[in-house]
Amino acid sequence: MIHQKGTKKRRFLVIARVGDESLHRQWLYPNTFRNFDLYLSYYGSDSGRYKNDCEYYSETKGPRWPVYKEIVEQLGERLREYDAVWFPADDISTDAYNINLMFHIFDQLKLWLAQPALTKDSFKSWNITIQSLDHIVRYTHFVEIMAPLFSPAALQICCPSFDANYSGWGIDFVWPKLLNYPDNKIAMIDATPVRHTRPVGKGNLVQNQSAESADPSRKEQFKSVLEQHQISFQSQYPNGIKAISGIKFCLS
């Protein structure tokens, strides 16, 4: 069940699956100036733990991306009130100023799918996600499941893939294909880097998954999703994942 506090007042929405060590309270500071509402989906055992931290609140066990699909479906028409939706992992360190600017850049450039770049001291999977100090954004054909940001239209198209497997591995390669690999619509937002604070695959939600859910392995789930959607990693990204263009800062 979704518990909603008050009415929607802001243009953007952040939805996060959170555990007992969640960093989401950093995202709310300074609370006065944030341009986004917050939906917290708590997967821990301390009922009501974060109910007063957000505009929307629910509690449920289960994997991150299939639960996100359920949340999007439950919100239904309420999502149409927002101009963009961000899905950060709960081990992302940032603040309200940075999130505000991220949403502003996404909106001004009319992006469909994006993510904030990662600071150089972040735990990472892909080099492309590390911040480029020379750019505001870098246009790509890839964003990672760690902290993707969707336009309403892109979310509607991509949401059916959220439960393609238990781990979510590989669905981030599916999204650009579902959007027909548009140029200048998918991006790394370098101007608003965030820090990923835990080793990849070591987050609390991953650790809480049962042995049954971990079989097949995440690598096998990754391979299966790409095969299902007829995506060849080597042919699509023969030299690894890389940016195709970008908007640079004016350096004077």
Rank of each mutant, 00 (worst) to 15 (best):
G6V: 10
G6Q: 08
K8F: 13
K8E: 12
K8G: 06
K9H: 15
R11P: 03
F12T: 00
R17P: 00
Q26M: 12
N31E: 12
S41C: 10
D46L: 09
R49V: 00
N52R: 05
K61P: 05
G62Y: 07
W65G: 03
L75E: 13
R80Y: 09
A89V: 05
A96H: 09
N100H: 06
N100V: 00
Q108Y: 06
L111A: 10
A117P: 07
F123Y: 15
K124N: 10
S125V: 12
I128V: 15
L133A: 14
D134W: 05
I136H: 01
R138G: 05
R138Y: 01
T140W: 00
H141P: 01
V143N: 04
F150K: 00
F150C: 10
S151A: 13
Q156M: 06
A164D: 13
W169P: 03
W175R: 04
P182F: 06
D183F: 08
A187S: 03
M188G: 02
I189R: 02
P193G: 08
P193H: 02
V194S: 07
R198T: 14
R198F: 02
G201D: 07
S210A: 11
S213K: 09
K219F: 14
V225C: 07
H229N: 11
I231R: 02
F233D: 03
F249M: 11
